[in-house]
């Protein structure tokens, strides 16, 4: 057992998940690869979305992968940081908008 929950080299072993369940892994990776192909959105735009989501879900593997992919697809540092701010705004906003729920409850409980 590794001494750390996160090993950088594990990113390269992502495909190994098929060893325990090949059928579902094959479906997942087929879908995954299709999602990131050029479509209505460019590969570059998709990689920026992935980078933002990677930060929202705080996945170190995904941050590693999509920092590389974003640069490879031609994005620059400014675009990448703006994408992360979008994630931060949604994460922050998601917390704050629940403040309305708190306010509603507080008002219900109060005279």
């Amino acid at each position: 057992m590794s001494k750390s929950y996160y090993e950088p080299s594990d990113l390269g072993k992502f495909g190994d998940i098929k060893d325990f369940q090949p059928e579902l892994a094959e479906k997942f990776f087929g879908y995954y690869n299709s999602v990131f192909q050029e479509g209505a959105l460019s590969e570059r735009e998709k990689s920026l979305i992935a980078l933002a989501v990677a930060h929202a879900v705080q996945c170190p593997y995904c941050i590693d992968a999509y920092t590389s992919t974003s640069l490879e697809k031609g994005s620059d540092e400014e675009e990448m940081m703006e994408a992360i701010h979008v994630a931060a705004a949604i994460k922050g906003g998601a917390a704050l908008v629940h403040g309305v729920q708190m306010m509603n409850k507080a008002k219900d409980m109060s005279m």
Partner: peptide
């Protein structure tokens, strides 16, 4: 401008 390969040319050209 780093240790990686270029992306698809047509898409980058549009950008």
């Amino acid at each position: 401008s780093g240790a990686f390969l270029p992306p698809a040319q047509a898409s980058l050209e549009r950008d």
